[in-house]
């Protein structure tokens, strides 16, 4: 059972090599002539000012929170989906009530305008 996961682990390591090796080769093979202008952050037509790590719109944060709720819900649905045939109508109605509560929350978000981007 667990030995099936071993190739996956090896693949992750190999993936790091496939990704990392060309970068290292390129750093060695390419020229390196840094100067101040080249190493400054990209800006169009003027010197970069202010810190780039600035305040950002709270909606991105909101999307992240909503994502956590819904992603957990999906993780919760996974085992249910697999055994649905065995647990029958009882399981279906149980999950229906759970989804209904979530959908009520979803409608509330929608009406509150949490999903609006203007």
């Amino acid at each position: 059972m667990l030995e099936n996961y071993f190739p996956v682990l090896v693949f992750i390591v190999m993936g790091a090599i496939f990704g990392g090796a060309p970068m290292i080769i390129s750093m060695l093979a390419g020229p390196s002539k840094p100067d101040d202008e080249k190493l400054s952050p990209y800006e169009c037509g003027f010197e970069a000012f202010e810190d780039a790590r600035m305040k950002f719109d709270v909606r991105y944060y909101l999307v992240a929170i909503l994502f956590i709720i819904f992603d957990l819900e999906i993780a919760f649905l996974f085992p249910w989906a697999i055994v649905l045939d065995e647990i029958g109508w009882f399981g279906f109605i149980g999950m229906f009530i759970f989804l209904l509560i979530l959908v009520i929350g979803f409608i509330y978000e929608w009406k509150k305008g949490a999903l609006e981007w203007e």
């Binding site: 952050p41 990209y42 800006e43 970069a48 202010e50 810190d51 780039a52 790590r53 600035m54 950002f56 719109d57 909606r59 991105y60 999307v63 992240a64 994502f67 819904f70 992603d71 999906i74 649905l77 996974f78 989906a81």
Partner: peptide
């Protein structure tokens, strides 16, 4: 540490996680 990169990353991330949910439901 560049404004454009920062904004682009925020947009991308928000977009990816939003569609991840629809994708997850389709998998279910």
């Amino acid at each position: 540490n560049s404004k454009y990169a920062f904004l682009g990353a925020l947009r991308s991330a928000a977009q990816i996680v939003s569609y991840e949910i629809a994708m997850g439901f389709a998998l279910v």
